[in-house]
Structure formats: C-alpha cells, structure tokens
Design a protein around this nucleic acid. Structure first.
Lengths: 345, 345
DNA sequence: CTGTTAGCGCGTTCAT
DNA sequence: ATGAACGCGCTAACAG
C-alpha cells in the first residue's frame, strides 16, 4: 500500500479510503490511486484487513460427521452456501470437526470466521445452546425444538409428508408405510421426528393403515428393514424420507415388487438424486442447494445487522411427479379374491 | 497475549514461544504461562498469527462449477480434503469461483490461503499453467497431459476400464459398450479421454465388438443416448464411467432389459453411489474420499517442503463385485433363434 | 533460558 | 479533502 501511495503521490491512508470508499476522495486523486493499483497489481491483504478491522469476511460451515459416508445431500448444502458466500464477497471455511459443542465456536474464537452455519442439528442441540448463549452470530440449516432467537432455514418435512400422502391417497392408496431415517446413535434429528409426527397425524386423520418403519442409515440394514416391512405390512405405497428412498427401491426390486406397478414410492429428497434413481422418484424435491444458499445469506445478513429479528424460513416446495407412483393394483386383485368389507370412506 | 504475559509474570514473547514451541522454555515458566492461558481462556488470533508469520495455515479448495448440478462425487473430495486439513491443523477454504485462470490465484494472492487444491482439470488447463508459472503451491485431484512438476492424485481410469473389461470377458461377454461422460462444452477432461483410449485399446487387443457412446452429463440426454445405444449396439454388457452408470441402469430398465440377466453393467464410480443403485453396481470403486484426503495432504506436504520432488499418485483399486454383472444370456437365445455366422472369435 | 522490540499490512482517529 | 501516527495480535530477530 505504501508503494502505491508513493507512486500516486498521496498518503497511505488515502489509498485505504479509495479502496474502502469510506470517505469522499476527489476524482483526480482517485484516478491516480486506481491507476497505481492496477500498474503495481496490488492486491489487498485480507489478513491484514481482518486484523485491523476486526472482521474476517469469512464464515464457517460446520460439516459434521464426514465419516466417509453417504450424506450426499450435504454436498448440495455446501455448494449452495459456497455460491452465496462468494457472491457476497465472503470466504467459506469448512470444518469437519466432530459435532461437539466445544468445536463450534473454535473458528470464530480464533478469528478465522465471523459466524457459523450449522447443519444436522438435533431437536435439542448443545452446539446451538453454546452458540446462542455465547452470543455468536450463526444460522442453522435445520431447526430445533426451541427456536427462539434462532435464525434458520429448513425444509418443511411435515408439509412434505402431507403432500406425499395426499398424492398417494388421490391415487387410491390406503395402506401406506413411512420409511424414515434414523441414526445409529440416540440423536433426535428434527426431520425424522417431524416426519413421523406428520405421518401419524395423517394416518389417524384419514383412517389409513399406515405403519412407520424406522430404518438405519446403513445401506444394508436399510435394505433388510425395507424387505421385512414389505412382507409384514404389505403396503401399496411408501413414503420415504431422504436417502431411504433410494434404498427402498432396491429392496422392492429384490422382493420382486415392481415400482410403480406393485408399489408406489414417494420420496422426500433432492432432485439430483430423485432423477437418477430407477425409476425416477416422484417426490417433494428437497431444495438443498437453495437451503445452503439461504443459510449463508441469513448469516451474512445477520453479521451486517445483528439487531434484526431472526429470520426463520420453512421451505415447502410442491410435489414433482416422476415415475414411481401409480394407482394401486394389488387392491383389485385383493377385492376380486376376497371382497373386503371396508368402504372406500 | 499481553494479559497472560503479565499474569504469568513473563514477557510477551515468552508466551508466544510457549505456544509455538519454537524455543526451549523452562518447565516452571511454561507451567505458569499455560495456567494463565487456561484461566483467561485465551485463544490465539489466527489472523494475527498469519500476518506476523506470513503463513495462513489455510488451503483453498477450488470447487468449480457448482452449477446447482449433480457432481455428487465432488462431495467426497470435499469431505476427504476437509478431514485431512483439519487433522493437520489447517483450515479449508472453499471457492466456487468460475474455473477461470484469473480466479485460481485470488485466494492465495489475498493471503487467505497458502496453497490451492484444484479439481476438474482438463488435459490442457490454463488454471494449471497459471499456478505453475506463478510458482504457487498447489496440488491437483486429477491430472493433465503434461504433468512435469505437478503434484497430483488421480484415479487410474485406464486401469479401471481394464479391470472392468477383463471381468466382463471372464464372464463371457464379447459385445461390450462404453458409456462415457462428456460435458456440454468442448472441454477435454482427462478421465473421459483416458477411459476412451483404454477402451479402444482393449477392444482392439481382444477383438471385442465394443462401441463407445459418449453421453452428456444431463440426466435426460444421458438416458436417451443410452436407450438408443442399446438398440443399435445391443451390447450384452456395459462399462459406464462415473454418473453415467446410475443412469444406464434406469435406461436399461426402461428398455425392458433386466440387469444383470439381460445386461451386465460395470461402473467406475464411488461406492457410496454404487451401493444405492438398483441393483448395486459391480465396479471399480472410485476412492473419492481418499483422493480428497490425499490431495490435501500432498499440498500441505508441499507447503512444508517446497523443494521436494512432486508426488504423482495414480490410485488403482480392485474391482468390487456386487450384483449388476452375470454371464451373458442373450447369446444363447440369439443362437437358438437364428444361428449366427460369426465364430466365437 | 528469557526479555525487548521492530515489523506484518491495513483501518482509522486526530489534526490539518 | 488529505496526511501522520497509532494499534490490531502476533512472530522473530536481536540482545542479554
């Protein structure tokens, strides 16, 4: 900066002001400074700016448990967040530190980032508590039980399940199963709990013969659980949350169930995945990229105006019909074989 | 730091040396300093360290073209790189800036990162040239045509295609098609070119009836291209590169081809994807997480010892047999129906 | 083994 | 409208 100040024949601070625009500078000197900057290929030193200004213009994205595993949708969050931050002139720092409360504030404490984007939160989350009570700027992709004061964006799983069930009911399905995700641990993730709650409510409201099945996020267990459920429940349709959907298809295939002829499947997952399954999944498209983007924007907004009331967004996109759902066929066979008593409501 | 120096009754620099370990400190003062640090909950200011030391202890991962799209495997790279960097005490900064040469050096020029990890390089890549000629520390996940001086890790696609073809030949397949990925643009990505080259070599070496099909990374086009290829080539087996594999399965399904009964498929993709396809894909597992990890480690090693000769790693994992391959069956039917003239080679 | 001190590159207040 | 000078928090000579 000193070099360009000298070359432009001005004071060092003038250069700073030209750059930041925090002061009116005469067009004349402005020109000279900018020219010198161009000629010397000067690049501001982000670190020094951060040190002097006390703000890093970087946010941290906490990418929990990147235990080599699946969590394919996480990538979309990352991609969305990366885009949004870069558009707003922020850097995005990734951390795969374990999801312990002690870790979430580290990057901000070390002044590597101004704020934090949290993912995979549980209904009651100690990391959230830590950030909240410590007064750290943060946003969540997902949400908790007690959301007072929290800034977040989430997919409306309740609404998603409702759309899915309505679609299946419209097609004539009455025996619908929910395939939910669950984790090895005892953690209670919001989307799992909310999906189940919505499912149970709808089942009882409409007198459906649903039956939930919780499956584990391990591919093999998921598949076994699915096959067993098919035999026991004999659903004509399935609502599957997240990655479970992809595996349900495989399990159905193994059971000799053709989708959608013998079994309809509605998935709540990202369109990127829904498109490459076999057959492509009808479902409520999880707008993962958008959510990542919004999560970042909410945080950056918050950094700019810390006193604004927190934004809380629930995204409820429509159902996209692909090829995995159809009218139930088993029922006809069942009726023909043994005319059931139940009226069609 | 001044606070803890005062509290411990030492000079400020002593605190620094205790922290960095760059000097021998008597156990006594060491103790006092550490206690003061704990009591005051002192956290080093990364930015200030960076400014003073001239090294940020952060590396940038260039995640090109996060155009909302697929590129699911990219996530694994990111996850692997994130793990490795965090283990070595580095931060990982993500950038989705467009893949222009001007962008790749920005983060390092602005002192946000010490080096760069590049992905999705083309055979002749201007970004690589820029980094190389500018003397920037960087590593590549992938590699180029001219790799002199480059540090990289890549999947050995040539070897992968060879394993795939061998496996299919062992099963008795002779009419094998390659479904390759290609991008909308005219970019020449190494893995596409190398896969094709290997395929062509093997086809001619073994007198196979292969026929390559290039498909676009757009889900719908991929599927149409696949269906058309099935009709024209009537392959008994397919080798599919990356995401094409998932879509080939869907296309086969639509054509009424059962996998593996009517068509065997071998994929070169990540096991995370291979496991959730329907049926699970036999293939050479693309060790994406591992590659991301190695990419980061190579770069960090390079930052530590800039004068070491560059490491160039080609990973060639074995074939994993899942459920998408079997002995060819069509041939029998064909023979029975219309005894073909062609000898069995 | 420990202390002193000069920067690292920039933002910003105070004076002009 | 411009300039001089101090400080952000830390590292690394240099000096004991």
């Amino acid at each position: 900066m000193a070099d360009i100040a000298e070359r432009a024949g001005v004071a060092l601070s003038t250069v700073s002001y030209v750059l930041s625009g925090k002061r009116r500078i005469s067009e004349d000197t402005r020109e000279r400074v900018l020219r010198a900057i161009a000629e010397l290929e000067y690049r501001p030193h982000t670190g020094a700016q951060a040190l002097a200004s006390g703000t890093t213009r970087a946010v941290a994205l906490l990418l929990p448990a990147a235990h080599d595993e699946l969590s394919i949708m996480q990538h979309a969050f990352v991609a969305g967040a990366a885009q949004a931050t870069s558009e707003r002139g922020y850097a995005l720092t990734l951390s795969t530190a374990p999801a312990r409360a002690a870790e979430v504030t580290r990057l901000v404490d070390a002044n590597r980032a101004d704020g934090v984007i949290l993912m995979e939160v549980e209904l009651r989350d100690r990391r959230v508590e830590r950030l909240r009570s410590g007064g750290y700027p943060f946003s969540i992709i997902g949400h908790c039980e007690d959301n007072s004061g929290l800034t977040f964006v989430d997919f409306d799983f309740e609404h998603g399940v409702e759309l899915a069930i309505r679609h299946l009911m419209d097609l004539g399905h009455r025996r619908i199963a929910l395939f939910n995700e669950t984790h090895h641990s005892r953690r209670r993730y919001g989307y799992t709990v909310r999906s189940r709650a919505a499912f149970e409510r709808l089942v009882s409201e409409h007198g459906l013969e649903g039956s939930e099945t919780e499956v584990f996020l391990d591919t093999y267990k998921i598949r076994d659980a699915a096959r067993e459920a098919f035999r026991q429940i004999r659903p004509t349709a399935v609502v599957a949350v997240a990655l479970a959907a992809a595996v349900v298809l495989a399990a159905a295939h193994e059971e000799g169930l053709r989708v959608p002829n013998d079994l309809s499947v509605v998935g709540l997952l990202s369109p990127q995945l829904a498109d490459i399954t076999n057959p492509p999944l009808t479902g409520v498209d999880f707008p993962a990229v958008e959510m990542g983007r919004i999560g970042a924007e909410l945080l950056i907004d918050r950094l700019a105006k810390p006193d604004q009331p927190p934004s809380q967004l629930l995204l409820a996109p429509p159902l996209t019909i692909r090829e995995s759902t159809a009218r139930p066929r088993r029922r006809r066979a069942a009726r023909a074989g043994a005319p059931s008593v139940g009226a069609n409501r």
